[in-house]
Design a protein around this nucleic acid. Structure first.
Lengths: 320, 320
DNA sequence: TTGTAGGCGTTATCAC
DNA sequence: GTGATAACGCCTACAA
């Protein structure tokens, strides 16, 4: 099979190369019958635009990049997996492709931006795992590189577009569910203060308890089943526990058999053991990230950045 | 910051563009002192080759693609995640980048190959989830597209390079572990016959039992915790059960409390509930896939395809 | 509405 | 060992 270029198509349709290019990029400028003839030639030849050549001319690669993280302790690992799948799907629909990269820390990631940008002319980035004092966003912003973050800019001004899940709403819903089923002594098992996500999850529970006028009890531990179990043992009064993650929830289930427990992330583990858990709309979040990034890339973004807070849902199972 | 091209470097170093290109691609052909001068110019200017332009000339994109699957029922979802991370790492080391795509079925995937190949000039593919009668490999082979599969070509001749994990060795090791700890009535809980992977896992257990001269008992079910539990209930004599997946193992734990159980895949769930499980060396498998693909792409592959069978390991926890 | 000319950054070819 | 020239496939002026 010979290589099919715009010239092949032009010859077949009996027009110039430019007309073929017009049919592809600005069809409305070509006379309908010519357009039709060219389109027929395109599909009968199976012609496809060569991205490299187009990129040379336009400087746009139709490529976006996202980091794939190591599956840390694992329980929450599949969160990224689902996000990536959704992002790849949405990108394809918008005419973009997703490129993967790994990076051990923020500095390495920034070095990768630099390389990806100059070597592959990447159009934009989707950042995950935003955190306090994140140097990545300012680096990109300084260079006018289009990007969107999944996770809000903790402690920094909202100068870029982002999508996030309303963590507080999730734990609040979990707390209300427990209140509705008759519990009044509902504890919280979270992470040490300081992480944006963790603090938000705690706040949702605290607000729901305050709204109900009930006293609170809480404990904190680094993420993990064992650490969660030790910390949960300190929740002596609670008949129910809202947790910041499924890992912690698993620990709570072990340390406090018989109590009601709600986890966070609706991981495979939660499904497997029947743990009620807060579920993040990851595919939707990914789709929204892509939408916002595409807006940016196509130059049709509003002048002020867009921020989207998506509501999670509660998946009720045996434990609550 | 101006755009730095090979011409900028040439000017700075006082040589022609071609000499710069030579320093990059065939350094041994350039006089050492010139080479050094050019290299200095390159790094002081922060020059990087433009892949799009290089690709136009050479027809090589330095891009490989891999499919990201939806996180099905979830428990085994993180397997792909870990593989992807390893692949991305290994690709980066070899000078390649990984592009992601999704596809609902084999036909859609083949259509994607076609598009990726003609639009982005992809250099090669890594296929996962190979199965009986897989049409993807023959499509790629017919067109001389370089590819490697993670998973052997079930029921088809070994005409391409592949990497796989020795599933039978994994269940055999699990069975021996149970024998060593005193069990003699060891059952197998697997999937319905016909899937290459499932059959191999069953075979490893069967062989180990035969070697020990012990009678066998087995049951089959579609993958899942509930289906696993129902099927496991039929294993009335066994004091221990080797399972084809962690999902089935979880079902077995529920249906047969107190019995020894071993799962497969060492997923987060296994870690969380203390399930002994067979662990696949996913990062290594990914690295080997990349090695084989790079050999193919760089034209230094042996004339006969390479096949690699990697040994899994047993992670012993509370259940066995 | 359609066609022509040039160039994006790189490398292969072929002189010097 | 080094340098000039052409070409990869496409798109953006500009001319017809």
């Amino acid at each position: 099979m010979e290589k099919v270029t715009i010239a092949t198509v032009a010859e077949r349709a009996g027009v110039s190369r430019q007309t073929v290019s017009n049919v592809i990029n600005t069809p409305e400028v070509v006379r309908p019958e010519t357009r039709e003839r060219v389109r027929e030639a395109i599909s009968s030849l199976g012609y496809r635009v060569n991205q490299a050549a187009r990129q040379m001319r336009t400087g746009r690669s139709k490529l976006i990049a996202v980091r794939i993280e190591p599956a840390r302790d694992g329980i929450n690992g599949s969160v990224l997996d689902r996000f990536l799948h959704g992002l790849t799907d949405a990108a394809g629909l918008a005419g973009y492709r997703v490129m993967l990269y790994t990076a051990a820390d923020d500095a390495a990631e920034i070095a990768t931006y630099d390389e990806l940008l100059s070597a592959y002319d990447l159009d934009g980035f989707v950042l995950t795992s935003t955190h306090h004092g994140d140097p990545r966003t300012s680096w990109l912003a300084e260079r006018d590189v289009p990007f969107v973050t999944f996770g809000r800019p903790w402690g920094a001004p909202d100068t870029h577009s982002w999508v996030d899940v309303d963590n507080a709403a999730g734990t609040a819903a979990a707390t209300r569910r427990l209140l509705d089923t008759g519990h009044t002594r509902i504890g919280f098992l979270g992470w040490p203060a300081g992480s944006g996500v963790g603090d938000a999850r705690r706040a949702g529970w605290a607000a729901a308890m305050a709204a109900a006028g009930l006293p609170t009890e809480e404990a904190a531990a680094d993420d993990g089943v064992d650490s969660g179990a030790s910390a949960a043992a300190r929740l002596t009064n609670a008949t129910a526990v809202v947790c910041a993650s499924d890992s912690l929830a698993l620990g709570a289930m072990r340390a406090l058999p018989g109590r009601a427990v709600v986890g966070f992330d609706d991981t495979a583990v939660a499904r497997a053991v029947g743990l009620t858990s807060v579920s993040q709309p990851l595919a939707e979040a990914a789709g929204r990230c892509m939408d916002l990034l595409a807006e940016l890339l196509d130059g049709r973004a509003p002048t002020t950045p867009t921020q989207l807070l998506l509501p999670p849902s509660l998946v009720v199972r045996r434990t609550a």
